[in-house]
Design a protein around this nucleic acid. Structure first.
Lengths: 129, 129
DNA sequence: TCCAGTATTCGGCAACTATGAACTTAGCCG
DNA sequence: CGGCTAAGTTCATAGTTGCCGAATACTGGA
């Protein structure tokens, strides 16, 4: 499937560059972020932007939509949350819910337990993990 | 000062390499992880291990203790959590857009950014930290 | 059809990664 | 006590990858 979860390291690699990190932050602000805006808000050339956005796309972090001759990006929040999950597994927190390191050994099926909570889609999201 | 919070991108960079990611995962399993174990569990040479662990150290992700002629690493979970916070701010679950780029200007001191954003008003994101 | 605007591919330079060799420090045993 | 071995690091170098400027393709409008 194209939904194959990209390796965590690839996502980190994508986020590891200040320019890309900046792009991600901007894209995260809107549902659809115009590529052209990046030219104004970033201190780099157009090709470089294209290069970086491609890396972000390959990492699965952003999605590209073309409309007319403009490109729009949107953040793949699900991918981001998966990565957060993986990180969290390493730093389970002072006292989360109850089971501390109990589920550490369990393989994570990348099914994102949290995403389910968030998709509830009221105005409240309770994250207990 | 010396505790200067390393930039998020630097942490990502440290995590972006498969070898380093592997190291972090192993170190996370124990309170004190012996360096020598890495020589058996990683497919790289000794100098390379040294190189990677140094990067992880500089990124603030692991701490080094020397005892006798052995080195031990431990994971800096607090650093990891800071990064998780930053990531979370990008995929906050509810409250998608809100005020667009309004709060981009605000400096993020890595001091509970998410909690602050949430506790302010209306729809709530509750983080059990 | 021609033109302006938009974003991608191509080529070279710079930076990073991996490794063998040599060095430093710590414990061991004669 | 003095050399010997073990554990990691530092150094120098080769190979690889990342980054950006110049030139190129695609889109839509006059």
């Amino acid at each position: 499937m194209s939904q194959e979860p990209v390796a965590a390291t690839e996502v980190f690699k994508a986020l590891a560059d200040p320019i890309r990190w900046n792009i991600v932050q901007q894209v995260a602000q809107q549902e659809e972020f115009a590529c052209s805006i990046l030219e104004d808000t970033l201190p780099v050339s157009k090709p470089t932007i294209s290069y970086h956005t491609k890396i972000l796309t390959q990492a699965g972090l952003i999605e590209v939509h073309k409309r007319g001759r403009n490109y729009f990006y949107s953040l793949r929040r699900d991918v981001l949350r998966e990565v957060i999950n993986e990180l969290w597994a390493l730093a389970p927190g002072p006292r989360l819910v109850g089971e501390s390191t109990a589920d550490r050994g369990a393989k994570r099926p990348a099914q994102a337990p949290v995403a389910a909570a968030a998709s509830g889609d009221t105005d409240v999201t309770l994250l207990t993990w």
